[in-house]
């Protein structure tokens, strides 16, 4: 079997809130093979974005943030590197697309400047070469009149176009791993489909691996090879995309899938999961989903083990009652 390109081992991130340490993620593990897409799903506040941010070393190195575990890229633990050393990887081998296209671009610099920046820094291109590559990238993300658009400012672009620009920026140096943090959440549905399609196409072309964070099961179904379902900072189920949709194990995954409105089911109201994600400070001991679970029993006061589904090597879940 080939080595994974990117690998997260026992990643735990804690924040100090009001003098108390709270765990935002606990022992997150995943492997990413070449040209593979991993989706991380879960409700807001379950630790998805934090995980991605720490993969690029974007969490500030402060006394009130504590990170444990390993983030391995080609065998190098990124968590051990200084900011300066990290900059050799960020934007070059590893890059990221963010959720908010409206605010993620710098308003006072032209789109061209923002795309070519990483080319100038990482690939030591000349300005002319970078410009050529930049226009090529704009064409690739299907921005019409790329030449003209290259020297325009972000406010002259619509939301969907800005997200395309963000994608162009992220792809500029041909990254090996692309992190996409809810890249379609802020866009309207038709644009969402276009952006997803674009990402899939680009992935096929460049052979890159992708970690996509989303809470949209529809997105998962259309792009993912592997899925990581997170709840309250823990991975509660991980499996291949196919297995997850065909035979979900964890009650939370089932509830999430159930919450998707489907045209073939005639119902009066949308299904939802009662209650809210517990806050970092108010995490229940034992199974973290126990406060909202239908199958809750006495056992759930203890932390459930990670179980492997019989016959499916890479399908794991954390639950007592399956």
């Amino acid at each position: 079997m080939t080595e994974p390109v990117f690998c997260v081992k026992d990643l735990s991130i804690s924040f100090k809130l009001n003098g108390k340490w709270c765990q935002a993620t606990q022992n997150v593990n995943f492997d990413l093979m070449e040209n593979e897409t991993l989706c991380i799903v879960g409700e807001s506040g379950c630790g998805k974005s934090i995980t991605a941010m720490s993969c690029l070393g974007l969490l500030p190195k402060k006394k009130n943030i504590h990170i444990e575990g390993q983030v391995l890229y080609k065998g190098v633990n990124l968590l051990d590197l200084t900011e300066k050393e990290l900059n050799d990887y960020r934007g070059d081998d590893l890059s990221m697309i963010f959720q908010e296209p409206m605010t993620s671009l710098n308003p006072v610099l032209t789109v061209g400047e923002q795309i070519t920046e990483s080319l100038l820094v990482h690939k030591s291109m000349t300005k002319a070469q970078a410009r050529e590559t930049g226009i090529e990238l704009l064409n690739k993300v299907k921005i019409p009149e790329a030449e003209k658009r290259f020297s325009q400012y972000p406010h002259q672009f619509s939301g969907g176009m800005r997200q395309r620009v963000m994608i162009a920026i992220a792809l500029a140096c041909k990254p090996t791993v692309l992190f996409a943090d809810e890249p379609t959440t802020a866009l309207d549905v038709t644009i969402q489909a276009q952006v997803l399609h674009l990402l899939k196409e680009l992935r096929r072309e460049t052979k890159m691996s992708m970690v996509m964070i989303t809470h949209d099961m529809g997105v998962v179904a259309s792009v993912a090879d592997k899925v990581l379902v997170m709840y309250g900072g823990q991975v509660i189920e991980n499996s291949s995309c196919k297995d997850l949709f065909e035979a979900p194990n964890h009650p939370y995954t089932k509830a999430l899938l159930n919450a998707i409105p489907r045209p073939d089911r005639h119902i009066d109201h949308l299904t939802s999961i009662p209650g809210q994600v517990p806050t970092l400070a108010g995490m229940p001991s034992g199974c973290r989903f126990s406060t909202r679970c239908e199958l809750v029993s006495d056992q759930c006061a203890m932390t459930p083990d990670v179980n492997t589904v019989a016959g499916q090597q890479s399908h794991h879940y954390r639950c007592w009652n399956v």
Binding site: F98, S104, L105
Partner: peptide, 13 residues
């Protein structure tokens, strides 16, 4: 701001 995060994620000095 978000665009500072973007700039950092590009690996700029």
């Amino acid at each position: 701001e978000d665009y500072i995060r973007t700039a950092k994620s590009k690996g700029l000095p």
